[in-house]
């Protein structure tokens, strides 16, 4: 580790770096001889496998094997945690989940909580993704203009991305409470107080609003990078031709930004399908089940309910996984198209 950093830094910073680096160096030094020993036995060509081994082991134990267990779980019933204790029930869990008289109406389904979760998630995604993309685009366009202190404004829109969902939810909950500052404002301009978390519509509105507030900066950043990658010559040429500004936007900016926009839409969809943290802390899924989403359904079914129904939770996860699979495929395709363009 020494060669790269030596001789450039001075004083305190260098000493601090040095102090932080020595345990790291010690670990690498200790690992040196077992790796050298293995290398002597297996030879250089097989060494990559040794370097890959720890990471693959983790992938295997915590991702690949669970993926299969998940599927196995979804085919079993009972309340036992360990697979060997669970009776095989075939597709019963799926049958239970998908048993609906009318698929458009969650109330007619046997497991109405699941369907309510799906409809809530769909509603959430529809509004969240639409407005997130819209506001990210406007913000990116504005940040891309000739403005002073652009770095500052970019940071302003970006910083909530790094806040934890719990913190974000608590910040907004505090504003939206019955005696919170927003209600104080409403009263001061002559309205009545609104009990936001008692109304299903308002709860959904704030769930969408808060998650846009928290995540918009991320998408803005991607779109901003896309805008800055548009070759300036195009705009110069358009200006020389005296092209109208709106036309420039529709004919140059938007088509060239399109691949990035697509990536943003799909990324937002993937995140949206998995929405849980902010909304769970903000509304707790309520009032009733008005803001209960699919992930919360899985969490509640598997880990909160008195009778922990792991099989049903696993079956719902498989459904979620299938949706995510297609969305991620779309993302990879969109990213490839953007990077090829």
């Amino acid at each position: 580790m020494q060669d790269a950093s030596a001789g450039e830094d001075h004083g305190l910073k260098a000493r601090l770096t040095e102090a932080a680096a020595w345990p790291v160096r010690l670990v690498f030094k200790i690992l040196e001889w077992p790796f050298a020993a293995v290398q002597r036995v297996v030879g250089v060509p097989r060494m990559p496998w040794l370097f890959l081994a720890p990471n693959l082991l983790f992938f295997g134990i915590f991702v690949v094997i669970p993926l299969f267990i998940n599927f196995a779980y979804s085919l079993t019933g009972g309340t036992q945690l360990f697979l060997q204790d669970r009776p095989f029930t075939g597709t019963e869990q799926y049958g239970f989940l998908l048993d609906c008289e009318r698929i458009t109406d969650p109330v007619t389904c046997r497991e109405d909580r699941f369907w309510k979760g799906i409809y809530n998630t769909a509603t959430f995604i529809f509004f969240q993704v639409t407005f997130m993309v819209l506001f990210s685009l406007i913000t990116a366009l504005i940040l891309n203009r000739e403005i002073r202190a652009r770095g500052f404004f970019r940071a302003v829109f970006f910083f909530p991305v790094l806040l934890s969902p719990v913190v974000v939810a608590l910040i907004w909950k505090w504003i939206l409470l019955r005696d919170g500052i927003l209600n104080a404002f409403l009263v001061s301009i002559g309205f009545d107080k609104i009990l936001f978390f008692v109304s299903p519509e308002w709860s959904m509105f704030w769930a969408v609003f808060v998650s846009i507030w928290a995540n918009m900066g991320f998408y803005t950043l991607i779109l901003l990078a896309g805008l800055q990658a548009i070759p300036p010559d195009l705009y110069e040429a358009a200006e020389m031709d005296g092209t109208k500004a709106e036309r420039v936007f529709w004919r140059i900016t938007l088509p060239l930004l399109w691949p990035n926009l697509l990536v943003v839409v799909v990324l937002a969809l993937i995140k949206g399908v998995q929405v849980f943290d902010e909304v769970f802390v903000l509304t707790g899924g309520g009032p009733g089940t008005a803001t209960q989403f699919i992930v919360q359904y899985i969490y509640t079914t598997g880990f909160v309910d008195q009778v922990q129904n792991f099989g049903l939770a696993a079956a719902a996860s498989v459904v979620l996984g299938v949706v995510l699979f297609f969305l991620t495929m779309a993302q990879l395709a969109a990213t490839r198209r953007r990077d090829d363009a």
């Binding site: 134990i61 991702v63 993926l67 267990i69 969490y299 880990f303 696993a314 996860s317 979620l320």
Partner: peptide, 21 residues
């Protein structure tokens, strides 16, 4: 491909089995 493939599987999809593991 395996590495990219695991991108497809966020923790939300495998909560129960990872809990078992």
């Amino acid at each position: 491909i395996l590495v990219i493939g695991t991108l497809l599987i966020p923790i939300t999809v495998i909560l129960v089995p990872v809990y078992l593991v």
